[in-house]
Amino acid sequence: MSIGDPRYKIARNEAIVLLILFVAYILWWYAFAYGLGSRNPSEYSYILGFPDWFFYSCVLSIIVFSAILFIIVKYYFKEVPLD
């Protein structure tokens, strides 16, 4: 059994964190789109001109998930030598 390259463990853990963020985004996207969006369209309010479900699901999410991604990459991801 080989000892293993410690950099691989870092790469694997980072991959797992980003997969979790992927699942979180799917839930967020789905909940707002079909949770809010399934109301009668006459009840929609408009935020910055977008139908409310769309604003939360597809516009606000860009800001929220970019911010989380930024924090994860800046504080959790490790710089390792590649060679």
């Binding site: 694997r12 980072e14 991959a15 992927f22």
Partner: peptide, 19 residues
């Protein structure tokens, strides 16, 4: 649905592949 695509491509396999 493509918001996470770049973080998946570069983030999930990017580091390991480069090493």
């Amino acid at each position: 649905t493509q918001l996470p695509t770049m973080w998946l491509v570069l983030g999930v396999i990017g580091k390991k592949i480069a090493i």
